[in-house]
Design a binder for these strands. Structure first.
Length: 201
DNA sequence: TTGGCGATTGGCT
DNA sequence: GCCAATCGCCAAT
């Protein structure tokens, strides 16, 4: 089943601060347009990698790979982690400043059959629970690095279609530097959020 | 030119 | 819970 498509988010709506943007994106929609149809869902988990963050990829300055993290807020930064999984980030600050928000999980709403095929599983809960799974489900790779997410196209951000629920905040997952900063945001109790249950209450 | 490493995942114990 | 898979990047040689 497919829900009516949301409105494309306007860049002016996006908070400039990285942590604020990470919280703002909870409940928004990620929409992927593929040859087979539209796929996507509601954002239920994000992490902020802000200015001067030792865990952020931009910490050591700009390089060719992370160039898109320095684009004006609302652009995609896609990279390959562990040689296995792609990660989708939303650039989050003013042009020339390197920072972003990692989209860690979405609650599938559209194109579930497409995502199931891309993921090789029928279990809806497992389609996009985790940043690598999310990219696999939506067919996101480096070809989408740098695209504008505030414009209708192959991948874009849409408005809320319902209240996002109670938002929790806690430590980020899977990092070693600055590991204790509470920069992860999630919908409390939502079963499409990744990580152990103990972190999602 | 090279070696160590990482914002993960899935399978096995 | 533990661990291997897998590869692009980049700091250091």
């Amino acid at each position: 089943m497919t829900v009516a498509l949301p409105r494309v988010l306007d860049r002016a709506e996006l908070p400039v601060d990285t942590a604020e943007l990470a919280r703002f994106l909870i409940g928004k929609r990620v929409v992927r347009t593929l040859a087979e149809g539209v796929a996507g869902g509601r954002v239920v988990e994000t992490e902020a990698y802000g200015i001067g963050d030792p865990a952020g990829h931009a910490y050591r300055g700009i390089t060719p790979r992370i160039r898109t993290l320095f684009l004006e807020r609302g652009h995609a930064y896609v990279y390959l982690a562990y040689g296995i999984s792609f990660m989708l980030n939303v650039s989050s600050e003013m042009p020339g400043v390197g920072a972003g928000v990692l989209i860690r999980a979405i609650e599938p709403t559209d194109g579930i059959a497409i995502m199931a095929r891309n993921r090789g599983t029928e279990r809806v809960r497992d389609l996009a629970r985790g940043p690598g799974r999310l990219c696999a489900a939506l067919g996101i790779d480096r070809r989408l690095d740098g695209i504008d997410l505030c414009q209708a196209g192959p991948l874009w951000l849409g408005s809320d279609d319902q209240a996002s629920g109670d938002i929790g905040q806690g430590k980020r997952i899977g990092i070693t530097r600055a590991a204790d900063s509470p920069l992860r945001f999630y919908v409390r109790g939502n079963r499409f959020v990744s990580g152990p249950q103990s972190l999602n209450r």
